[in-house]
């Protein structure tokens, strides 16, 4: 069953140098995400991953195209959509001088619901940090806390924007376990990443974006078979990183 469907999404920005020119940060993206899957959007920096996500989340206007989450039109009913989704943003800053416990209470209140902060913190393994301030947390703890914030409304869909960027391997593994466990409860998860291992390990399906367009979409194994089967790696050919380079074809982006 489809829970997120988007057709031909376009987001246009003015060129920051020459304002008479404009470019499409997202250029005709169509998505069909199934209920209960972990769907990954892969791509180099500036490919349009975050913009696509924020259009689906109702944080950015959709210039052209349509998006539906659980059959609700995002453009027409952004507040209804926000009720049923959880969002973890790239930036994880919160009000100063507030404990994690208080922040979770605040976020629950913004949905006009009550949700036990301790239960939420237990889910992300931070129950002992309930009275700590957000800026006292380590990188991995901060990411886990931001997932706890995204869970306050028991969302149908959880959006994670580069959840493991900047984390050490242990913190990364612990976050993967968390995401897998949430997915096992039936939650649909959409994440962006440029970590190939993460895409391969977590995602049931992957879309690869470049220059605002989706240039490939399939299961990790199918993508490897199609685009990187000739690369010698272990017994099954190359890994997702090889797929990525084969498809986007260039090195550093910024």
């Amino acid at each position: 069953m489809t829970i997120i469907s988007a057709s031909n999404l376009i987001k246009t920005y003015k060129d920051s140098v020459d304002s008479s020119k404009s470019f499409n940060a997202v250029d005709g993206v169509s998505l069909d995400i199934h209920s209960g899957e972990i769907y990954g959007i892969l791509g180099p920096n500036g490919a349009g991953k975050t913009t696509t996500l924020e259009m689906l989340e109702g944080l950015k206007d959709i210039d052209e195209g349509d998006a539906f989450i659980n059959e609700i039109n995002v453009q027409d009913y952004p507040y209804q959509v926000k009720q049923i989704i959880g969002v973890q943003l790239q930036a994880n800053e919160y009000f100063d001088n507030m404990s994690l416990y208080e922040l979770l209470n605040l976020f629950s209140a913004l949905y006009n619901i009550k949700n036990d902060p301790i239960e939420l913190l237990k889910k992300v393994n931070l129950a002992d940090k309930a009275q700590a301030k957000a800026n006292e947390l380590s990188g991995g703890q901060k990411q886990r806390f931001s997932i706890a914030c995204a869970l306050v409304n028991n969302p149908l869909v959880l959006f994670l924007d580069e959840p493991t960027t900047g984390l050490d391997p242990q913190a990364k593994r612990s976050l993967w376990d968390l995401v897998s466990n949430l997915n096992k409860t039936g939650m649909t998860i959409v994440l962006t990443t440029h970590n190939m291992e993460e895409a391969e390990f977590l995602c049931q399906r992957i879309a690869i974006m470049d220059y605002g367009k989706i240039i490939a979409e399939d299961t990790p194994q199918n993508l490897i078979d199609q685009h990187a089967s000739d690369k010698p790696k272990e017994v099954i050919g190359g890994n997702m990183e090889d797929v990525f380079i084969a498809l986007t074809g260039h090195g550093l982006r910024d």
Binding site: L89, A91, E93, L110, A150
Partner: peptide
């Protein structure tokens, strides 16, 4: 600047 505003508007608050 700190993205706190964006975090608030992820929720259904207007």
């Amino acid at each position: 600047r700190r993205g706190i505003l964006k975090r608030l508007f992820v929720t259904p608050i207007k």
